[in-house]
């Protein structure tokens, strides 16, 4: 009888709200390209130092939204309310690229996704600057990343609010994000560039 009580003491620590950010832009946005021109980079002022992705993965701010159930749930509602679903569907994409898979044109770090929403991107992503309160933009970041399994399964939504479409975020296989070039006018690369086959096997995502 004491066992459950003892175990419950070892529960993980959770915050129910993420403190709203007090600056609009995060301090350090990961670069989409790791290659930096040298040697002057070492002498640039510390505020504009390139920050490696590794270091940012220890940055707590953006990641807080990936482990907070309330933020992820709000993000899901906002994803519909701000018409993200119109272009990206429930993660499978349409007018915009899919969000379920491991392919990211502009980076999958929370700060990079934040910048995509804030500033827009040149091939059609509109800028939401001034249209969405900042904390809600971060909640959207969390939900968008949960679509490819980047959020904690304990915190991610277990069901859709609507007609069943893609798997709920807490059951989506965790993808390993990679930055890929955006196909523009040349032959598309990746999944669909393979030779046509006659099998009807389901495609392996990310191949």
């Amino acid at each position: 009888m004491t066992l459950p009580a003892a175990l419950s003491c070892k529960r993980e620590e959770r915050s129910f709200r993420v403190a709203p950010p007090f600056v609009e832009m995060p301090e350090a946005i990961p670069y989409n390209n790791r290659v930096r021109p040298g040697p002057f980079a070492t002498t640039t002022p510390s505020t504009s130092q390139p920050v490696s992705v590794e270091r940012l993965s220890h940055e707590p701010f953006g990641r807080q939204y990936l482990i907070n159930a309330q933020a992820l749930s709000d993000g899901q509602t906002l994803y519909g309310a701000f018409n993200c679903s119109g272009c990206h569907a429930n993660g499978g994409g349409g007018m915009g690229p899919p969000l379920l898979d491991n392919k990211w044109f502009y980076g999958a770090e929370p700060e990079q996704v934040y910048v995509s929403i804030l500033e827009g991107r040149p091939n059609g992503m509109p800028s939401y600057r001034g249209r969405i309160p900042d904390y809600q933009m971060w909640e959207l970041v969390g939900y968008v990343l949960s679509l490819s399994g980047q959020a904690s399964p304990n915190a991610a939504a277990g069901r859709s609010e609507h007609m069943t479409t893609a798997l709920p975020p807490n059951s989506t296989p965790r993808e390993k994000p990679e930055v890929v070039p955006q196909p523009t006018t040349g032959p598309a690369t990746g999944k669909t560039a393979t030779q046509p086959t006659t099998t009807s096997q389901p495609r392996q995502n990310g191949q």
Binding site: N90, G92, G94, P97, A188, K191, P196, S200, Q201
Partner: peptide, 29 residues
């Protein structure tokens, strides 16, 4: 096929993807 959409979401491309999930097995762009 043209937009490399993800067939795991039946509502992709305003729901059309669900009807043509197997198209990438038959053609490339």
């Amino acid at each position: 096929v043209a937009g490399q959409l993800d067939p795991r979401d039946p509502s992709a491309a305003l729901g059309f993807v669900n009807a043509v999930k197997d198209l990438p097995d038959h053609t490339k762009p």
